Amino acid sequence: MSSIFISGAAEGIGRAVAHRFLAEGWTVGAYDIAPVSYSHPNLVAGHLDATDAESWDAALADFTAHTGGKLDVLDNNAGIIADGALAALPAPKVAAQIQVNALGVTLGARAAHRYLAATDGSQLVNMGSASAIYGQPDIAVYSATKAYVGGLTEALGLEWEPDGIRVVDIWPLWAKTKLSDNDATSVRRLGVHITPEQIAEVIWDATHPANRWQRGKIHYGVSLLDKAMYWARSVSPDRTARFVNRFISA
């Protein structure tokens, strides 16, 4: 039976991913700093502080005790946001975002490597964001951490290729979770239209490429709009991208 470990799985996107993979008969590890309230015969739930290396080691050891020591997919999903101008944002809120969204993803990848390397065809999925396409004001720290996720994904995709581990990330716009309950102007401008279930479906598709060409894909959008924004940024001069993003966030 294939297996997936999901961080930040108590609710929102993590919970939707858990249900999507459970529906396909996978063994699912749903770990979070908050209690996981749902259950299933193939579900293993537990505690994880994504910012703590020892917590990652303990959680993965606990889960892989149910899978024979192997891990097909790590879904590095845990993330937090604090909106507001950087100069006015309390230092603990700045640090917390960096610790969960950047350090937490990095520690998760580090801890999972030995299990992924022991499993043929294994994959690491990192949760990015369309806010990393061009840095966003009022969520500057969050946006920057998601840009970090993109860079980490690309680097590990090369570093871990000899180990047979594929590394991808997901770049959605705002989804209907607690994360989008903030005052960022882009929430009002663009709206919140994506569901956690849509993102879960993209993660399912991303981890099941149909051919070698699809297997070479690294960054995954979710909606037509975030895919168009990603493409437009790749071909736009910096001045144009700055103008468009100023409009979105003004």
Rank of each mutant, 00 (worst) to 15 (best):
V125Q: 12
W204R: 06
E159I: 04
W174D: 14
G191I: 00
P172F: 07
Y115Q: 01
T106M: 09
G151L: 04
G150S: 12
A112N: 01
I203R: 03
I139M: 05
A184P: 02
G151W: 07
D181G: 03
A111G: 12
L156S: 04
A109F: 08
G150N: 11
S129V: 12
A140M: 10
Q214H: 07
A184C: 07
N101P: 03
W213N: 13
E161T: 03
G104K: 01
N182W: 08
P209Y: 05
N182I: 15
H208N: 15
I194S: 01
W160V: 04
A140S: 15
V192M: 05
V187L: 01
I165W: 11
E201I: 00
R188P: 00
S186K: 05
V202K: 05
G150M: 12
A144P: 09
R114M: 00
D163S: 06
V149I: 15
Y142K: 15
L103H: 11
V141P: 06
I133H: 02
E154V: 06
R215E: 03
V192K: 09
E161R: 02
G108N: 06
L103M: 14
Y134A: 07
G104P: 11
L116S: 10
R114N: 00
L152W: 13
V187K: 01
I203M: 10
H113Y: 01
V149Q: 10
I218Q: 05
G164T: 08
A175V: 04
W213I: 14
Y142T: 15
D169Q: 06
D169W: 12
T153C: 15
E161F: 03
N182F: 03
T207R: 07
K146H: 06
T207V: 08
I203E: 13
H193L: 11
A210Y: 13
G164I: 08
T153A: 08
W174P: 05
A112F: 00
K146S: 07
V168F: 11
